[in-house]
Write a protein that binds this DNA or RNA. Structure first.
Length: 282
DNA sequence: CACTCTACCTGTGCGC
DNA sequence: TGCGCACAGGTAGAGT
């Protein structure tokens, strides 16, 4: 499922790729399933999109942000905000490409292109807003650039299992289930560890691991996991590798539930203790 | 306020 | 072969 690196890859593809989405004008918006829209009706959405031009593309956490300039110069600026959730995909395609079985929205563009949103599980959502804060204000700092002092002070103040906290988008935006498991493995931290029991060394390792894992995955254009997300080249060490050999110690990767989420870790490399694990080296 | 739990969805893979 | 079922999980919103 798309997390920060996959969303960042999509931003770069649509913005810098050939063809680019930047500068394209929406000729017609076709909503194939109304449920994909959040907070506005089909008609309002169509009216807002049709005639508008894509001006810029960015993201915060896992949210894609498309800045749109309406045809009418007096009209208010609008932003198209897309969340892919688990199975959502966006494609910029030639207009001759047929809709798929799971196409939820098609934007017909000038230049012989279409922007198509496909989502088999119907979890993904699209919003049209005048101000990005309507959607993004509840999010924490973007995970790729989260500050260490903020990270450390939040962990110390909270008394919560570290994994659900890391997945809390109001704390840090962009980390999902896959990269959380990868970051804990690298930092040698058990996902059930209480956040306020981590020492400064642990927190430094975790902070570094999150940013390193995400940066590597961005460089690889996303993850490559059999049957889950195969577009990129980033190979996971623990996610979905239940019972496989740990690549560091040869121990067996375990799967448990943490906060209702499937969680993969190496019980040897990531021991659970009440004390900070700062004495573990290597 | 802080945290936890459930609903939302459907393709996949398994056991029988 | 085909049926039923558990499972996957990000987020909103309800519950504790």
């Amino acid at each position: 499922m798309p997390e920060l690196p996959e969303v960042e890859t999509l931003v770069r593809t649509l913005r810098d790729g050939l063809p680019t989405l930047i500068g394209r004008v929406v000729k017609q918006a076709d909503i194939h399933w109304s449920g994909v829209l959040s907070g506005c009706s089909d008609d309002i959405c169509k009216a807002g999109l049709e005639g508008s031009k894509f001006v810029s593309i960015s993201r915060h956490g896992k949210y894609l942000v498309f800045e749109m300039r309406p045809q009418d110069p007096d009209a208010e600026q609008i932003f198209l905000i897309v969340h892919l959730r688990m199975t959502g995909r966006l494609y910029l395609l030639p207009e001759t490409t047929a809709c798929g079985r799971h196409t939820r929205l098609t934007l017909q563009l000038d230049g012989g292109l279409v922007l198509r949103f496909d989502d088999p599980r119907k979890f993904g959502r699209i919003r049209l807003v005048k101000n990005t804060a309507e959607v993004l204000s509840g999010l924490g700092q973007d995970a790729l650039s989260v500050g260490f002092d903020y990270f450390r002070s939040t962990l110390s103040k909270r008394n919560r299992q570290i994994k659900p906290l890391l997945l809390d988008q109001s704390f840090i935006a962009g980390v999902g289930n896959i990269y959380a498991d990868e970051a804990f493995f690298r930092a040698r931290i058990h996902p059930l560890t209480s956040s306020d029991s981590l020492g400064k060394e642990d927190i430094m390792r975790l902070h570094h691991a999150i940013i390193a894992v995400l940066n590597e995955a961005v460089a690889a254009k996303g993850a490559n996991i059999d049957g889950v997300f195969e577009e990129g080249g980033f190979i996971v060490a623990v996610y979905g590798r239940t019972a496989a050999a740990c690549q560091v110690c040869g121990g067996q990767i375990q799967k448990i539930k943490v906060g209702q989420r499937g969680t993969h870790f190496c019980p040897v490399c990531q021991p659970l203790s009440d004390r900070p694990t700062r004495n573990i080296t290597g």
